[in-house]
């Protein structure tokens, strides 16, 4: 019953996101295939993973789980329902002082089960003028432990203006979600080098780059 309610709410949320943002998916670097992937994206708004999730075709949506902070999504009954039954999120403990187990544990478990993931390697929402914050190391560890999973950079354009941090009501502006060329961990690659490479792969996916070239 709660599963059914979850799937209905999921459809409503996707429909609403589409109506407000007219979101369009641009598969430039890869095709929408049911491969196991980690989609890593820039993070500017709470609307981010809703948008990626809406942009994915339904069969891919069903096998893709967003990674989200347990502290936020466990805070009340409503969020627990949305986090678990609507988006089927993988909840992780971001609280450094209290964590005893491996914080990546639930993520590794989901990957072992064959799920694709949506991950925001900046760790927090970017509200500054820099296009990207430095990446947290989690992506590196996952890439090294699961070398067969494709890492797909995903640039989300404009959602930060639709629903900026601290705002509750979205304004309708067009958004796009661009899927770039997948990258993989190369054997022996050092952490900082890998994270920089991942970051520039994501920046290269941004349509701002095309616009600058066109202008």
């Amino acid at each position: 019953m709660i599963e059914f309610a979850g799937s209905v709410v999921a459809k409503l949320i996707a429909g609403f996101a589409r109506a407000v943002t007219g979101v369009r998916a641009r598969w430039l670097g890869c095709a929408p295939e049911p491969k196991q992937r980690i989609y890593f994206a820039n993070h500017a708004s709470h609307g981010d993973f809703v948008l990626i999730w809406t942009a994915l075709p339904p069969p891919l949506r069903a096998m893709t789980r967003p990674i989200a902070g347990k502290d936020y999504w466990d805070a009340d009954e409503m969020r627990r329902f949305i986090g678990r039954h609507v988006f089927n999120s993988v909840l992780i403990n971001r609280n450094v002082t209290s964590r005893r187990e491996n914080p990546l544990g639930p993520i590794e478990q989901a990957l072992s089960q064959g799920y694709s993931l949506i991950l925001f390697p900046e760790g927090t929402r970017n509200t500054g003028s820099e296009p990207l914050l430095p990446f947290k190391p989690g992506l590196f560890h996952l890439a090294r432990s699961f070398p067969n999973v494709e890492l797909v950079p995903v640039w989300i354009d404009n959602i930060g203006r639709v629903l900026p941090k601290g705002e509750v009501i979205p304004v309708p502006l067009l958004c796009s979600v661009t899927f770039g060329h997948p990258i993989r961990y190369e054997a022996g690659e050092a952490k900082p080098a890998f994270l920089l490479r991942a970051q520039s792969a994501l920046l290269n996916t941004s349509p701002d780059k095309e616009r600058r070239h066109a202008a």
Partner: peptide, 19 residues
């Protein structure tokens, strides 16, 4: 209007006005 304002560089402070 959605198309027009998408390419107009408004700021976070304009959220209320856009709404």
């Amino acid at each position: 209007l959605r198309e027009f304002l998408t390419i107009a560089p408004t700021h976070r402070g304009d959220h209320g006005a856009l709404f």
